[in-house]
Each structure stands twice: as C-alpha cells, then as structure tokens.
C-alpha cells in the first residue's frame, strides 16, 4: 500500500506513473458519489471520495478499515487540503478534518508514503 499526497496540481499522478508500474486501466478516478472499485489499483482524487463520505455521514477510514484485505496493492493519491484558512462552510470544515483523519490511517497502514512538491516527490516513509 502506497500513499502519495501533496497540494492540488503538483503532479502527483505523473509522479506515480513515473515510479510505479501503472496502466491507464489501473486508474480509478474517485468522485463524491461513486463507491470505490477495488478491482482497480490506483485511487486518484481520493479526497473527492472523502467529500462524498462527509455528505453521506460515513467515516472514510472506517470504509477503508472494513475493506482492509483489498488494499494491499493500492496506491492512494490524495490532495493535502490541510494548510489553508479554516473554511466558513460547515461541510468543508468537516471534509478538511476527515481528510486529515483518513490520511493518518493511510500513512500508518502504507508501506511507503511520498509527498509531491512542484512535481518533485520526496519519500517520507
């Protein structure tokens, strides 16, 4: 299991494609309203899945923990949304916090963790 995070538009998927064996058909683009497809290997925009969890009142890391056995070969790509102003909107505030909790779970469970900054990846675990 691999976690790759960083700010928006930093080249996280490109970094993953350069460093791991990924086919286009391996990529699952997460959205607010779709369930995860565990037959795919790479979950891109995972923060969008988490926003969907907020809207449905589900804890994203519980969803992951319940499906832990399917996650060993997965690469999670998540936008780090933790460094701006606290959002005025209640839902966005809850999103920001749930992304944080989920990233803590993912970084603990992952064999390796990378942060991508301006296209350059740095391994932090």
């Amino acid at each position: 299991m691999v976690l790759i995070f960083g700010g928006a538009y930093q080249g996280k998927l490109e970094f993953a494609q350069d460093n791991f064996d990924i086919k286009d058909s391996d990529i699952f683009r997460c959205s607010e309203d779709a369930d995860l497809d565990y037959t795919k290997k790479v979950f891109v925009n995972f923060h969008q899945f988490i926003l969907g969890c907020v809207k449905r009142g589900v804890e994203a890391k519980d969803v992951l923990a319940d499906n832990r056995e399917f996650l060993n070969d997965k690469i999670f790509i998540v936008d780090d949304i933790s460094q701006g102003v606290v959002p005025m909107d209640k839902e966005l505030r809850a999103w920001r916090e749930m992304v944080g909790r989920t990233m803590l779970y993912l970084s603990k469970e992952s064999d390796s963790v990378y942060r991508v900054f301006c296209g350059i990846g740095q391994q932090i675990k």
């Binding site: 930093q10 460094q83 701006g84 966005l92 296209g119």
Partner: peptide, 24 residues
C-alpha cells in the same frame, strides 16, 4: 497556494492550475 480546503470558482481554479504549471 495548493493546500486549502475550499472549492473555488472557475477563474481562481484556473489561476491555481496555471501557477502550478509554472512552478512545476
């Protein structure tokens, strides 16, 4: 300017995407 929890309107989002393009 890429790590805040906010959904921006199109032009600001385009500006963020453009700045990231230059940074990379």
């Amino acid at each position: 300017i890429y790590s805040d929890a906010f959904i921006y309107e199109d032009f600001t989002e385009e500006y963020r995407r453009g700045l990231a393009q230059l940074d990379k």
